[in-house]
Design a protein around this nucleic acid. Structure first.
Lengths: 232, 232
DNA sequence: GAAATAGTGTCTGTAAGACACTATCGG
DNA sequence: CCGATAGTGTCTTACAGACACTATTTC
């Protein structure tokens, strides 16, 4: 809708929407993963090139991938675009977490940020350009992150932990088929704490489909391999 | 921060934040309550005066109270301001629910809406000007609401139900002291379904402080009166 | 055989659903 | 006494925590 048509609408002070200053709206996305073998969640950070900014931060800094919302664009599409442009990633389904609205949070001016999160297998992040994008543990993502990005990561981790509490690998981090031990190691990495072996098995086994296949050559008794149920 | 200082920051296309069009950002708040004696949640609606708009909706319409975010203002303060200006209410603590971002959702132009919710006793809404503000049942708030306000109400109701599931009247809708029957009637109104008498009592009684006082003159055996615990 | 892991069994404590029973009021 | 409501007791089921036991493999 153009400014010309919108200007027909005036508020109780006789002003149109265009008569007030508008914020920039950004999206910042915490993309979480568990690197196979790791015992913790990791988050994708991208490098803000110092050439992009006139004066500050000559050394650049690591931040969550973000983008400024464009006219006519949906928030989820802006989040996808930032992941594509900053890290070459496609096929995400980010979810909204929270709006960060501190007027002083961005040196460049008045910028609201709508935080998003998604989770994806590390295998799909394999070809990252190390100079522009890297994974960092969620507990200690390096030096202090600007723009309240640490708080965004906390929201994202809480969301991921809530999903993994009662459902086997809802985001498909494990490639099928997998053993219940592999599933438990993954869930422990997400939860950030050890989980009980027998309770975990009882909760998850009923939500999995046995394949009839068994591991071979591993230490200890072979374990059955499972798949996720088609809809559960 | 002024446009002059912000203009030092340029992006990879050599543009500043001011070179892109910006959306308006609105807040819309679903203020929920339970009118004593009602068996359902109600939501506060305000009348959009047709004089405020040039051409459409000559008859006006009922909507959630909202406001356009002003420069330097926090979202929660804009939500409070809308409740104060549109319904004369003070002392709210609205919580963020979700951002509605359909570019076509507002006829006036590109307007994002950050939905908020709060719950407060109907006694504090007693002096509403009926021509400008009224309560409507959340299930059937009248004719179809514009601006996806129906979806906002659904989010708010889900949030309120989640809070009332396990905690006695977390928003303080009941005036103390109260009987467990009064508490259960309130929780049934919030939940929108009957709750079991004995299970409800066992869950809630341990989270309440008995007063040693009893109802008098009621039909049936007198009931003990309780208060909320100071911190629980 | 020792160590390691998988799979299963069982006991306990907690909590919800369901139902029943006694207690105490108004009428 | 009757109807209604309050408060309590108890049985069943489900499930998590905890522990134990057997089974099957590698070393």
């Amino acid at each position: 809708m153009s400014a010309a048509s919108a200007s027909r609408y005036v508020d109780s002070a006789g002003k149109t929407l265009e008569d007030y200053p508008h914020p920039s709206v950004a999206v910042d996305t915490a993309l979480l993963t568990v690197v196979p073998g790791d015992d913790h969640l990791s988050v994708l950070l991208v490098f803000r090139d110092p050439d992009d900014y006139a004066e500050d931060n000559a050394g650049g800094e690591w931040v969550l991938p973000g983008a400024i919302l464009r006219k006519g664009e949906r928030l989820i599409d802006a989040a996808r675009r930032s992941l594509r442009e900053k890290a070459g990633l496609d096929g995400m389904s980010p979810r909204q977490l929270h709006v960060f609205d501190d007027p002083e949070r961005d040196r460049r001016g008045w910028v609201l940020s709508v935080a998003h999160m998604d989770v994806m297998p590390a295998s799909r992040l394999g070809s990252l350009d190390e100079a522009r994008a890297r994974l960092a543990p969620v507990d200690s993502p390096g030096q202090h992150l600007p723009f309240e990005h640490g708080a965004i990561i906390d929201y994202a981790v809480a969301q991921a932990r809530a999903w993994y509490e009662r459902v086997p690998d809802p985001y498909g981090l494990l490639s099928e088929p997998f053993t219940i031990l592999e599933l438990r190691r993954l869930h422990e990495a997400v939860a950030g704490k050890p989980l009980q072996r027998d309770t975990f098995r009882r909760l998850m086994a009923v939500q999995l489909s046995p394949t009839g296949q068994w591991t071979d050559g591993t230490r200890g008794r072979p374990a059955e391999l499972f798949r996720r149920l088609p809809h559960g």
